[in-house]
Design a binder for these strands. Structure first.
Lengths: 117, 117
DNA sequence: CGTTCATATGAATAGTTATTCATATGTTCA
DNA sequence: TGAACATATGAATAACTATTCATATGAACG
C-alpha cells in the first residue's frame, strides 16, 4: 500500500504485539501533555524553587527575574496539571509542590542528562 | 522597583535559599529540553512501541499509521537526546530504547496521570 | 465602603515545532 | 555498475505556546 515496505510475517506480528500492549489513545495524549508541562525551563525553574519551600507569586517572580504575569500564567498551567497546589494567606497566595511525582520525575531527568558519557 | 511587592526579610531569605539550591542555568535548560522530547504524543507512542521490542522505521510508521518521513524526523530527535539507539541490518535500521530512564520516567508519568482522584 | 495590594486573566505577538512533500543518501542484489 | 528499496533530510506550512501589556478580580484594612 503506497510506500510502506512489503515485509514478512515477523514484522506484522511485531506490530500487532506492540499495539496490543499500548495504552489507550487518550492516556498517551494525557501523558504527553504532562511531560509538555515539564518541557519549559521557566516551569522547571519554578518547580525547583518550590522543591525547597512554598513561595508566593511575587517572590517567585523576583527569584526568577520574571514578570508577575508570566509567573502567574505558568503557575496556572502547573496547577491545572496538579503539579502544584496553592494556599491563601492574607493578600498573598503561596504555592507548593502537589506530590512526590514531581521530584521523582525531575530526578530521573537529571540523572539522564548528567550521565551522558 | 516597579510593581514587585515590597516584602520583608523572611521572603528575601527564601529567595536566596532557593537560588542557592538551584542547578546551573544550562542544566535547567537541558532538563526542559529532555522533557520536551517526551511532550509529544507521536514520540511517546514510538517509545511505547519500542518498549516492547526493537523495530525498523517502516514498521513503526505502519504501526502508528504515520508517514515514514514523520517517524524518521521524530526518531532523529529521540536519538539526539539519547532516548533511542539504532542498529543497521541489511537495508533496514532497527531502533530500540537507549536505557532504563525512559521506562522509569514514563512510568512515573503514568502513575501521576492515573491517580488523579 | 473605597483604596491598596497581590494575583489572575484576555488579547496580541513572536518564536517554536510537527507534519508534509520532494528529494537525497546509502545499502543490497542482480 | 545500476536498479530498487529503506531511511534521512531540507524547506515550507500550519498549529501551538510563552511572554507582554493592559486590565480585572478579590482580599485586607483604614
Amino acid at each position: 500500500m503506497g510506500d510502506t515496505c512489503e515485509v514478512n510475517e515477523i514484522h506484522t506480528d511485531r506490530i500487532e504485539h506492540a499495539l496490543k500492549c499500548m495504552p489507550p489513545e487518550d492516556e498517551l495524549y494525557d501523558l504527553a501533555e504532562l511531560f509538555k508541562v515539564f518541557g519549559d525551563s521557566t516551569r522547571i525553574r519554578i518547580l525547583f524553587v518550590l522543591f525547597g519551600e512554598e513561595m508566593c507569586v511575587c517572590d517567585l517572580a523576583e527569584a526568577l527575574s520574571m514578570t508577575q504575569s508570566a509567573i502567574s500564567h505558568q503557575l496556572r498551567i502547573l496547577k491545572q496539571n496538579k503539579l502544584v497546589k496553592s494556599r491563601r494567606e492574607g493578600k498573598s497566595i503561596f504555592y507548593s509542590l502537589a506530590d512526590d511525582h514531581v521530584g521523582t520525575i525531575i530526578g530521573q531527568g537529571m540523572e539522564h542528562i548528567t550521565e551522558e558519557a
